[in-house]
Design a protein around this nucleic acid. Structure first.
Lengths: 189, 189
DNA sequence: AGATGACTGAAAATGTTTTCTGGTCAATTT
DNA sequence: AAATTGACCAGAAAACATTTTCAGTCATCT
């Protein structure tokens, strides 16, 4: 039985269930059936433990998102599907959701850092896709990093923020057509 | 000497200097050279006092922004100037800046509510300008409320958020050309 | 050599006392 | 009579004291 793996799984479960601050190393040790000291032979500290788990989650997210891409569809449709999938993952994936909540409520610094890491990873991923589409002349030349950031922040605004201050949530179709008619339209060659 | 005016000015100064939570009604009374009870003959409570001051600030902001509009310029240039002016106001105007800071650090509920009010006012203002431009066929038909919200959130993202996670700030020209080549381009007829 | 859990200091939670402050209202001034 | 005022109050918040928790270490054990 792989002790490192056991620890990762135990910690992942605990972080997902109780959040970063509320899971103790002792609890993780108990869940993983190891002594507390053993954890520290594999992971320098609690923060690094979280980091390794989040890195795994990013890979998982990429894999799930990649499935959404249908090469026969136009770029804008794939981009929309990918972004909606990412933001859905943010709400559905236990660990991600818990970390987002903890960052908003508790402002745990370690969590803030990890979420920034995830965000930067997402934006880079989208920027890559942009570069590919630009290479294929599906899109006009543009600063893919900036446009990716713009798209990500704009999607967050409508999927996560809008509901906070408005009575009726937007449907996915409304969001799709808004972006269709503004940003994606402006990006066509 | 207009007592109500005195109170408004004293409170405005104090809110700007110390924030909402840190200004006491007694302090405002002293600054305005009135008894504490007098304040309550003009304003139902502390929150209403803030509200009246913020409402004044919104008018001030509109007036300052309106000056930026040059009817000979294309819509996109005016929109950019207006949004940059608004976000600059947010940083430069003492009261606005203080309230933004207080909302981030202290999360005073009354302040949160007021800032939401200001935001909604800004978005409505931008939406109005969109409707006018759409009427003049300068822009394609679109849901002005949604597009205004998109623009506002996107500008905030680049002017306020980008610097938090990136080494080098963006220049105003970079921001202008990004929006030029994406959203505004997509909005042309 | 690798695993362990008792141990430690620092930080957080909890409990307790004191101070502060938004709002009221009877007394005072105009 | 109408407007103004500041002493007063209750509840909130700060300040302080005390206890508990927990990340990380390390001497001991297997």
């Amino acid at each position: 039985m792989d002790r490192k793996q056991e620890i990762l799984e135990a910690a992942s479960k605990s972080f997902s269930l109780f959040g970063y601050k509320a899971t103790t190393m002792e609890q993780v040790a108990k869940l993983a059936n190891v002594g507390k000291g053993t954890i520290y032979t594999f992971f320098a500290n609690k923060e690094i433990l979280l980091q390794e788990i989040v890195l795994k989650m990013i890979l998982e997210m990429k894999a799930e998102v990649e499935v959404e891409i249908d090469p026969t569809l136009p770029f804008r449709d794939n981009a929309h599907r990918v972004l909606m999938k990412i933001l859905q993952f943010r709400e559905v994936h236990q660990l991600y959701a818990k970390l987002v909540e903890e960052e908003k409520e508790l402002r745990t610094p370690a969590v803030k850092i990890m979420l920034e890491r995830v965000e930067s990873e997402i934006v880079s991923y989208i920027a890559e896709k942009f570069d590919i589409a630009i290479g294929k002349k599906e899109l006009r030349e543009c600063d893919s990093e900036l446009v990716a950031y713009l798209l990500y922040k704009a999607y967050i605004a409508f999927v996560a923020d809008w509901g906070q201050t408005h009575e009726k949530e937007l449907t996915e179709d409304q969001i799709a057509s808004l972006f269709q008619n503004t940003i994606f339209r402006g990006l066509l060659p």
